[in-house]
């Protein structure tokens, strides 16, 4: 899968395909985690797929994404190869971060994917800086920063919204409000739970969006992106969504009722789009089966790749703490190479 060449051209079928890729990839990750192929912390995006797919529909390959530790989905649909993500989760040398990051730290310079940040709120300042560099260099690019509702209690969120608004930086702040900061409900940790309202207080255009409806997300992201590209400064979308799975594989999920989870499962974003497409006769069960088969093949290929991929030699443990010399003994300048 490669990233589309122009923003906002995603057909219903393409939006569906991308959501399914995330869903099936992560379902396979659960099996692999149970089989101890994948270790460490692993956070699943299942239930939230419409957010990543809808927002990224507004991006061009030139745009920049900064994400969180729940980022497999963002990485996949930005074009980071499933093989490279899976190998990273296996801790292999062929992983995108050469086995040094794991599930929470997917990075891919070639696709302008700046992680994989596991400090809640820590990616926001970096996103502001990337956008600042684009503006200072006269590049017509946008930076999307994904973060959760939990980040809005962090000081870095408030520092960054002020900074981005003050300098009118081309950033789309994509708040994935899944109602829980790990196990703490939004209403138990925020005095004001209208997140868009709070963002708007910084002078940033902000509004809430139904994050279970990929078409609504794509529409909102398209409008925000258009304004940002036209120089209107940062925008904020509160994408109201829900994770169907626990916070991480370690989480016994004691803080949510089964009834609540079931209520949200009825609003599964993939089921919803399939229903819409069937109603409009855009897809048949046979089409769906073909799509599922293609996706399954991609994922199994990724698993096979990770299984046979070599591990990073222990002798290379301390590589990449500092930059290595480039040709002729000059310091390597990787950052320039991808700009």
């Amino acid at each position: 899968m490669s990233v589309k060449n122009s923003a906002g051209s995603g057909s219903h079928r393409e939006l569906l395909r991308q959501m399914l890729r995330i869903r099936r990839f992560e379902e396979r990750c659960v099996e692999l985690y149970s089989g101890e192929k994948i270790r460490g912390f692993m956070h699943l995006y299942i239930g939230e797929e419409a957010v990543a797919v809808g927002v990224c529909d507004a991006l061009t390959p030139d745009d920049v994404v900064v994400s969180t530790y729940r980022e497999h989905g963002h990485a996949l649909i930005r074009g980071v190869p499933a093989t490279s993500i899976m190998a990273e989760m296996y801790g292999r040398a062929a992983g995108c971060s050469r086995g040094r990051g794991g599930s929470m730290h997917i990075f891919d310079a070639a696709h302008r994917f700046y992680g994989g940040n596991a400090i809640v709120g820590g990616g926001l300042p970096v996103a502001a800086g990337l956008a600042l560099a684009d503006r200072m260099r006269g590049r017509n690019r946008m930076t999307v920063c994904f973060f959760g509702d939990g980040a809005m209690a962090e000081g870095e969120f408030h520092e960054c919204l002020n900074l981005a608004a003050l300098w009118r930086l081309p950033v789309l702040f994509a708040c994935e409000n899944n109602l829980y900061a790990m196990g703490t409900a939004l209403a138990r940790s925020h005095a004001q739970t209208d997140l868009a309202l709070r963002a708007a207080s910084y002078g940033v255009a902000a509004w809430p969006v139904d994050g279970m409806d990929v078409l609504a997300v794509a529409d909102a992201a398209g409008r925000a992106a258009g304004a940002i590209r036209a120089g209107a400064g940062p925008h904020f979308l509160e994408l109201r969504t829900y994770r169907f799975r626990a916070h991480s594989m370690y989480d016994p999920d004691r803080y949510r009722s089964k009834a609540e989870i079931e209520q949200w499962r009825k609003r599964d974003p993939i089921d919803a789009l399939v229903a819409t497409m069937k109603a409009e006769r855009e897809i048949t069960d046979a089409d769906l089966a073909v799509l599922e088969k293609e996706i399954s093949a991609e994922i199994e290929q990724a698993v096979a790749f990770a299984e046979q991929a070599p591990v990073e030699p222990v002798e290379d443990l301390t590589r990449f703490v500092c930059s290595e010399p480039g040709p002729g003994g000059k310091p390597a300048r990787r950052v320039e190479a991808i700009l």
Binding site: L130, L132, C160, L339
Partner: peptide
């Protein structure tokens, strides 16, 4: 000049460095 936001502007410096500045 920056606001009094050490984490914000140091992080923005990191981002700007990643962006080629």
């Amino acid at each position: 000049d920056t606001p009094l936001s050490e984490a914000g502007f140091v992080g923005a410096g990191i981002g700007a460095a990643l962006g080629g500045m």
